[in-house]
Design a binder for these strands. Structure first.
Lengths: 243, 243
DNA sequence: TTTAAATGTCTATTGATATAGACAACCATA
DNA sequence: TATGGTTGTCTATATCAATAGACATTTAAA
């Protein structure tokens, strides 16, 4: 927690400080006390005014990460960061495992459309081939952790939206459609600032970071069955790649 | 490029716009013209004043990504985003492949110290066991793309810093020390805002995003030989996981 | 050589960000 | 029940960020 905060960078001090505190909480720096240091201490630490620290804490409170109690201090409410293993057998539903009590996928919308160049390349279709597109949000313990756009070959998986809405899981939806097993072929990972759609879907505060994956799943014969662009809240998620 | 820009988020509009334009350049959106759209067009697109766009472009010019020429327009100078495959045989040096002309690792500093709990857990040592720590920066075509802290078991790899400084590569340094082959066992990926150290080491502008990996390499018998925390400039890098 | 289109510069104004200080309200505990 | 430590609220001020408009300067092409 040594590095100082930076001015005139286009990123407000209160936001930089909020990010730093969030990270410290997540790293377990304040585990012993179970609360964040007093505002005056933080102000001294970061070399800013107490009011600036208060803005940062207000933002964290808005996210539900801390709760300030007058007279006592600022309590840590939540510090988890979910871990997603990325392997040949990556599945959202089972990947969570025992890290949470409940997980579900919600279908926001879907349509049948023609594959653009990117989708066609990943699904190994010709551009213009019919595909099913699904917009989904995945929630863990009722908190959204990722939103995704997924494409499926239309001929083979016409019933996908209905099956997903019923089962709330890609794995189970595939099973309903007769595909009992599939494997993760490729995953690309990048990061960016959350855009407006992310903020809404993931209930984030502006300036948040999202981890973005572009993933392709195939059946056991190697034929692509799904291409998906998923956006994960970087505060709530990390990936683990086991080779 | 549809999503609008967001106000009162602690991230200045000019910075959000700079990030968006940088990403668009990197994605090849402007490849045809070889230049960024006129300021007035961008202002309309983002729904902001032309002066705000100018601030964003000034920041990108400072990074050396674009060059504004009066009367002509804003030319794109540089648009790379390096791809790093993460596999069982992940190596920084060879992973770059033909994406660049030259790559080198620079040793910033090193020390022998005792393993803390985290390092001990990853290297499968007892806490307090002696380890070599190295701080490095990796450059591709003379531009820094990542900085890393790496730990090695001290008994086995005492000569690591010297070997790395000489060979500028982990793989070659291991070879010098008698380890001819190794494999990537685990990689964790997260993202965060760049901190002060990142900004300096990676020559970033404040507010930038870094992709963070925690990686463990083992020898062919499965014994850990290296644990490293690397921080990559998210603008310059993406990861690909092939399963 | 003219013209259109683009970036560069200047002034002025408004709102968000940050600092500064003072004091109120609340909590735990000595 | 005091007291010290903490968060909450208020006022005031300075600086940065963003908008608005006008006009100069440069380039490429008609």
């Amino acid at each position: 927690m040594a590095g100082q905060v930076q001015r005139q960078t286009g990123v407000a001090l209160w936001r930089q400080i909020a990010d730093r505190i969030r990270q410290a909480i997540s790293a377990g720096v304040y585990d012993e006390a179970g609360m964040v240091p007093p505002e005056t201490v933080l102000a001294l630490q970061f070399g800013v005014n107490r009011h600036t620290v208060r803005s940062a804490i207000a933002a964290l409170a808005q996210e539900g990460i801390v709760r300030a109690v007058q007279g006592r201090g600022t309590l840590i409410e939540r510090k988890e960061r979910l871990n997603f293993p990325i392997t040949r057998r990556t599945r959202f539903t089972t990947g969570i495992g025992e890290q949470a009590r409940e997980m579900r996928g919600l279908l926001l919308g879907h349509s049948e459309e023609r594959a653009d160049d990117e989708v066609a390349r990943w699904l190994k279709l010709r551009p213009g081939a019919p595909v099913i597109r699904m917009e989904t949000v995945r929630k863990v313990d009722n908190r959204p952790v990722s939103c995704a756009t997924a494409w499926f070959p239309a001929e083979r998986f016409a019933g996908m939206p209905a099956a997903y809405e019923k089962t709330e899981s890609i794995t189970r939806a595939f099973a309903e459609l007769g595909l009992s097993d599939y494997v993760r072929a490729t995953t690309e990972v990048t990061a960016a600032h959350a855009d407006a759609a992310d903020l809404a879907a993931l209930e984030l505060t502006p300036g948040a970071i999202v981890l973005i994956t572009k993933a392709m799943n195939t059946d056991l014969e190697g034929a692509p069955v799904q291409y998906a662009i998923s956006r994960f809240s970087a505060d709530r998620v990390q990936f683990t790649i086991e080779n």
